[in-house]
Design a binder for these strands. Structure first.
Length: 772
DNA sequence: GTTGATAATCTTTTT
DNA sequence: GATTATCAAC
């Protein structure tokens, strides 16, 4: 036995070394489930003589895939073991390209993301003259996605809808579904659901193809099995049907993707599907302190629809959870910043701290607070790099080079930069493409050639565009993605337009495009499929977490609780524990949804190795300046009260959550420790927060706290309107206005930098140098 | 027909 | 507080 068997406990060893056949690993949070899977792969190769390329491992994210592959390599002493480790979507995309002939799609099909899907549905609604407000595209897309997960085609869906006559909504959906699918096919494009569904169909309709993959993959392993949907379930079932060497790992308490079709029955009924399945439960937690684990167990125990299990640990008791009830969300963010500063004072690395929230929008105030108090951070998710306008534009151009039928992409860029192409010209183009059954790009070529009724400049611009893409297309099979990108940037005039704009915003976009070029170049030399095709596929299927760099840069990480799945940190800050925020008001409808929110909370709590900081606010300030009251989240009441220390506004411990007095105070909606008062500026927040940070630090005897805030200033240090100043990064500029604050360091100075634009700066941070 | 500017309208979670 | 619908001018 290789020495790494010593690193496993008995249960883990049982899972890792189990003989062939169906195996279910039910594992709690922090019990090392991905680790068990990784070691099992290594074991299969090392001990059982399975060839690496005969193993298929499916993970939840590309990042997890990369890590697992690397780890298997380390265990075996190999650089790049040929194990196929990949996500469902990447796996399916690869299979579909390989088997394109059987699927009825060109192998250069595009992969449409949510935005592309919405675009298609919007067009369909416009054509049907249905009001997009009364019938929002996302509602149709959700219904279509559900249907696709059940492997329903539009015709079958329509038949069922018609059978239930009177269901007007289903009939409408059926119409949209049919047009939507027809458009996708016309555009030679698939959405995320098609990637899976088309492989399932391929396997079910071509037994010979399936048999070839069954022979190829002697072992199939799936991580995060509780988050698979029905189509994925059928895919796995088909692949494993012949040899039944299937290993799945999951935890029903961590199922948080039901909203996109994940079905926990897949894991709960595994033993029904495979009566000879061997089941291994991993219940020892290696990650968290006793306190963290007790809190999480107590919370998730309030769910009815679950398999009871109780995690335990040999780790130390640890510190109590800390809960701060802020007056409003600004106060909450400020307190968070000061707690972080306090932790840093104690010698904790910011890189070991994470801030988790329910919705991406909540990151904004946190970012403002962290910036204001000078704490470095990294946001994961939200606006993905690939979601930025300029990036999407260039991706659209690149997609067109590969796939001339991609109408969504052409529509996006046909008038960027301006070519004098508006809605009327576009409508004619679509008409021509449909009448002549031409790919949209060819239709454009013909229209520019014949040019009937087009304004001269428009016609010339379209002709140029057509030539540019045509040339690149001719070379697309062998060209490097970074070269294609560079050629497009130049010859479409995209770069020139941005350069001429000469604003800071345009400069930022150019930077982003440079970054895209860097990524494309990296892909060209390092990737398995270095082609343009491979690059675009990668771009469509990476998630934001995949690109999170875990280099030892010392900064706080901000992300949603969903994104945090599978990760762990020493210190976890959970903000926004308010009813309607978390649990989110949109989940109030059914018990099922509330239980999913509770599982999400469970996932969030169990990310923590050592400390948990919770906070909520008593009111929220809407954007019209109106304040609405908030109630503390029900999840707070579901934690063992004696484990939760309540921190007052002055930073002192006010007692435990269970004390009757605190409970009354909270029920009355009052912030604890001091009378509730809205915090309108970071100045106010700083005053309250500083006290909190002092108290935390003093309580731990860690010496005097040092504010990470702005440099001290007097009113005389402030420049006046019209004065010239120098900024370390942006150079010389002229002061437009100064908004004074009680502390001059907090004042906001608006400065115009010639050629760069107008920038608002906080006096204490910007360290502006007066020139006059 | 196209462009630029103003007005209205929301805000879950994601491969 | 950012994206999208609508409208008036070019």
């Amino acid at each position: 036995m290789p020495e790494w068997h010593d690193e496993l406990n008995d249960r883990q060893l049982e899972a890792v070394t189990y003989k062939d056949g169906p195996l279910l690993i039910l594992a709690g949070a922090g019990s090392g489930k991905t680790r068990a899977l990784t070691y099992r792969i290594a074991h299969l190769i090392y001990e059982r003589g399975v060839a690496p390329y005969q193993i298929l491992a499916i993970t939840f994210t590309n990042k997890a895939a990369a890590e697992m592959k690397e780890r298997v390599g380390q265990l075996l002493g190999l650089d790049a073991p040929e194990v196929w480790v990949s996500t469902f979507h990447s796996t399916c995309a690869r299979i579909l390209r390989r088997e394109a002939a059987h699927v009825g799609y060109g192998r250069d099909f595009a992969i449409y993301d949510t935005a592309d899907q919405r675009e298609l549905v919007r067009d369909i609604l416009a054509e049907l003259r249905w009001d997009a407000k009364k019938f929002p595209p996302p509602a149709f897309l959700a219904a279509i996605s559900t249907a696709k997960n059940e492997l329903l085609r539009p015709e079958e869906f329509a038949r069922r809808a018609a059978a239930r006559s009177g269901d007007a909504w289903a009939e409408r959906t059926a119409r949209v579904f049919r047009s939507y699918q027809r458009q996708l096919e016309r555009n030679n494009a698939m959405d995320f659901d098609d990637l899976i569904a088309n492989v399932v169909r391929l396997f079910e309709e071509h037994p010979d193809v399936l048999a070839a993959y069954q022979r190829r993959f002697l072992h199939v392993l799936v991580d995060e099995y509780q988050d698979t949907n029905h189509a994925q379930y059928r895919l796995v079932r088909a692949l494993a049907a012949a040899h039944r060497n299937i290993t799945v790992v999951g935890d029903d308490d961590q199922s948080i993707y039901a909203f996109r079709g994940a079905d926990t029955r897949n894991i709960l009924e595994f033993e029904r599907d495979y009566p000879d399945a061997h089941v291994v439960k991993l219940e020892q937690n290696y990650r968290s302190t006793v306190t963290v684990l007790q809190a999480a167990n107590s919370l998730v125990g309030h769910n009815d629809m679950r398999k009871p299990k109780e995690l335990w640990t040999e780790n130390e008791q640890g510190e109590p959870l800390r809960y701060y009830q802020a007056t409003d969300q600004r106060d909450e963010a400020a307190h968070l910043a000061y707690s972080l500063a306090g932790l840093r004072q104690q010698g904790e690395a910011l890189g070991d701290c994470v801030v988790l929230y329910r919705t991406n929008a909540q990151s904004r105030l946190v970012e403002e607070a962290l910036t204001h108090f000078g704490l470095p951070y990294q946001v994961v998710g939200g606006l993905r790099f690939y979601d930025r306008k300029e990036i999407k534009d260039l991706i659209a151009y690149m997609r067109l080079v590969l796939n001339p039928a991609d109408a969504v992409s052409l529509h996006r860029v046909i008038n960027v930069p301006r070519r004098g192409v508006g809605p009327a010209t576009w409508a004619r183009l679509v008409q021509l493409s449909e009448d002549e059954a031409l790919p949209i790009l060819d239709a454009m070529g013909r229209m520019a050639q014949e040019g009937t009724g087009l304004p001269g400049p428009t016609r010339q611009a379209l002709r140029d565009l057509s030539a540019v893409i045509g040339e690149l297309r001719a070379a697309s099979e062998t060209a490097r993605p970074d070269d294609v990108l560079e050629a497009l940037l130049e010859s479409t005039g995209y770069r020139r337009e941005l350069e001429q704009e000469n604003t800071m915003e345009a400069a930022g976009r150019l930077d982003n495009l440079d970054e895209l070029a860097r990524l494309a170049g990296e892909h060209a030399v390092g990737a398995e499929d270095p082609s343009l095709r491979g690059f675009l596929e990668q771009v469509a299927l990476v998630s934001d977490i995949d690109s999170m760099d875990d280099e030892a840069t010392d900064r706080v990480v901000l992300m949603t609780m969903h994104t945090a799945k599978g990760l762990e940190f020493d210190n976890v800050f959970l903000i926004g524990l308010d009813e309607t925020v978390f649990p989110h008001e949109r989940s109030f409808g059914t018990k099922r949804e509330i239980e999913e929110e509770r599982r999400l909370c469970y996932v969030a709590l169990t990310r923590a190795r050592r400390r948990l900081f919770l906070s909520s606010a008593t009111m929220r300030i809407g954007f019209r300046g109106e304040s609405e009251p908030l109630m503390p989240s029900r999840f707070l009441a579901e934690l063992p009260p004696h484990l939760v220390q309540v921190i007052g506004r002055g930073g002192r411990a006010a007692g435990h959550l269970g004390s009757a007095q605190l409970a009354r105070q909270m029920a009355a909606g009052g912030a604890i420790g001091r009378r509730a008062r809205p915090v309108v500026s970071w100045q106010d927040a700083a005053a309250a927060g500083q006290m909190a940070a002092d108290a935390v630090t003093v309580a731990r005897g860690a010496g005097a706290p040092r504010a990470t805030g702005p440099a001290a200033m007097t009113e005389q240090d402030l420049p006046g309107p019209g004065e010239k100043v120098r900024h370390s990064k942006w150079g010389e500029g002229t002061v437009v206005s100064v908004a004074k604050r009680p502390d001059p360091a907090d004042s906001e100075i608006t400065v115009a930098f010639p050629g760069l634009g107008i920038k608002r700066l906080v006096a204490g941070f910007a360290r502006l140098e007066k020139l006059s």
